[in-house]
Design a protein around this nucleic acid. Structure first.
Lengths: 112, 112
DNA sequence: ATAATAGTTAAGTTTCCACTTGACTATTTT
DNA sequence: AAAATAGTCAAGTGGAAACTTAACTATTAT
């Protein structure tokens, strides 16, 4: 997978999770699969808005969905958040190798 | 810390990282501290824009800064990303307790 | 002291994002 | 078959976000 593509995936994940409504939808769906209507209910938004949120979450890889009859089931896709975890681990490795120097800097600046 | 406040912190972190320019700034600063001008250079943006990005990153807790003379040094704040890590761990626990049921569902839907 | 450098702030512009309404399709229910 | 339900799509609106320019302050170099 190209660096650019990978970055686009990460970007869509951060964008998806930057919205409070979508974070709560993820939370809900982490418990058990839910329909789009069920995801809309707790918020004062139209069904159309909920559909858009779900589509965005699906494009980012955070959820999978499956249409069953006239209902669409939305379920968590563990792959989505492990992508995020991998990104986070990579970044942490980056600065942990530098942590000795950094901690020296932090020691000089005890504020916070 | 209240749930609402905590959520606001998480939100600001996701929002900060949803922007490609800011993610690259974080990447740069993970290696070693950098000035605002140094952070602006790789991108075709004005210094003023870079200042705004840095301010946003600082408000989200992802970086610390310190003014030295006419220069502002920007450095990674490990606390920022560990907040993100904690959030991620919490969510993972949520659905890992549900993973047995979920994997059954996934087995029924081998697509992907 | 003057000039150059680094950053900051305010204000305006453009672009993007969340949301709504309204028309439409497909599936259940009655 | 008709009515209700669940979702989808397109187009439009409003507000937030990213960016610019321009005027200004503080520090360092000549």
């Amino acid at each position: 997978m190209s660096r650019h593509r990978k970055d686009a995936v990460i970007e869509s994940i951060f964008q998806a999770l930057a919205d409070r409504t979508r974070r709560q939808m993820i939370e809900r769906v982490s418990q058990s699969p839910a329909t789009v209507s069920e995801l809309a209910r707790p918020f004062s938004i139209t069904l159309a808005a909920a559909v858009q949120h779900v589509q965005l979450l699906e494009r980012s890889g955070l959820v999978r969905t499956e249409k069953q009859g006239r209902v669409r089931l939305v379920m968590i896709d563990p792959a989505g958040l492990s992508t995020l975890r991998l990104w986070l681990d990579d970044r942490r490795n980056l600065w942990e190798t530098r942590l000795d120097g950094l901690s020296a800097i932090l020691r000089e600046n005890p504020k916070r």
